[in-house]
């Protein structure tokens, strides 16, 4: 299905995850993002095929969050382009927002609302007609059913992050962006996060996550992208990397010959 057809179909019934088009989930073309003339992303070009799980690694300040915020339409590219499911994050921002779910490393719930009210509010923002059922089901799934009617102000960091996960997937997004979603999660919630990513992979839905837990990131993802100072240091299969290799990339050292060759083949 072409991007034009996708746009044409949207006013009648916007596509959700189940009928997401089999086009590239993400496509970056010489993407540059600068703040006050200070470049954060320096000409990234990369393609993530539909249905793949991508982990983005990088030391602090490498541009991971900026990249995810750009894909979520929260930051505008300075130059170049970023497409999500074939839609431009600037020209088609409104349509991109229907397709994308975003979970940041800070949960940022509405603290004076209950967990259920938070989810119901976002269900209404996405126009879900079965919002109450979705909210109840997700609260059960993230282990917050018993606290559904408690104000979020009283939640622990981990509970708020579970709620943020539920909020991020309430509209069953075609592309889910997870920015360090494991921050503050206990073992049970980490297992929940891993099940969520695995389930999306089974359903051929794209997921992009950043994490500083290299082992977990490599275990969860099909593909890996390593950013160092706003540039791609590695792009390719996650299976070809190990923790030591990623750490070498962080330090600005080249990978072993085999991995470097694969990296060159994986980058768009």
């Amino acid at each position: 299905m072409s991007a034009q057809m996708l746009r044409a179909a949207r006013p009648v019934d916007p596509p959700a995850a189940a009928d997401a088009p089999p086009m590239d989930a993400i496509r970056l073309e010489r993407l540059v993002k600068a703040f006050d003339a200070r470049p954060i992303l320096r000409g990234l070009s990369y393609t993530l095929p539909a249905g793949r799980t991508l982990v983005i690694f990088g030391p602090n300040g490498a541009g991971k969050t900026t990249l995810l915020r750009t894909l979520a339409t929260l930051a505008r590219p300075t130059s170049g382009s970023a497409l999500v499911a074939g839609l431009d994050v600037i020209a088609d921002a409104h349509e991109v927002r229907r397709l994308v779910g975003y979970v940041g490393h800070q949960p940022h719930p509405y603290e004076e609302l209950t967990a259920r009210e938070n989810l119901l509010f976002f269900a209404r923002m996405y126009g879900l007609r079965d919002g109450a059922e979705r909210a109840a089901s997700l609260l059960e799934r993230v282990g917050l059913r018993a606290r559904a009617n408690d104000r979020v102000r009283a939640f622990s960091r981990g509970q708020a992050q579970r709620l943020a996960l539920a909020r991020g997937i309430i509209h069953d997004p075609a592309v889910l962006l997870l920015d360090e979603p494991d921050t503050g999660l206990d073992q049970e919630a980490l297992a929940l996060l891993e099940r969520l990513v695995a389930e999306r992979r089974e359903r051929a839905l794209a997921t992009v996550l950043t994490t500083h837990n290299l082992e977990r990131g490599l275990r969860l993802a099909d593909d890996a992208l390593t950013l160092v100072r706003g540039r791609i240091a590695y792009a390719g299969a996650a299976a070809t990397l190990d923790v030591a290799a990623v750490e070498r990339l962080y330090a600005g050292k080249p990978l072993a010959e085999q991995a470097t060759r694969q990296a060159a083949g994986g980058a768009a």
Partner: peptide
């Protein structure tokens, strides 16, 4: 897949939800 409200009806729902 969830059924969705669209167009002016969605904007109206969002307005009151906020």
């Amino acid at each position: 897949m969830s059924m969705r409200t669209t167009g002016a009806r969605l904007a109206w729902d969002q307005f009151w939800a906020i």
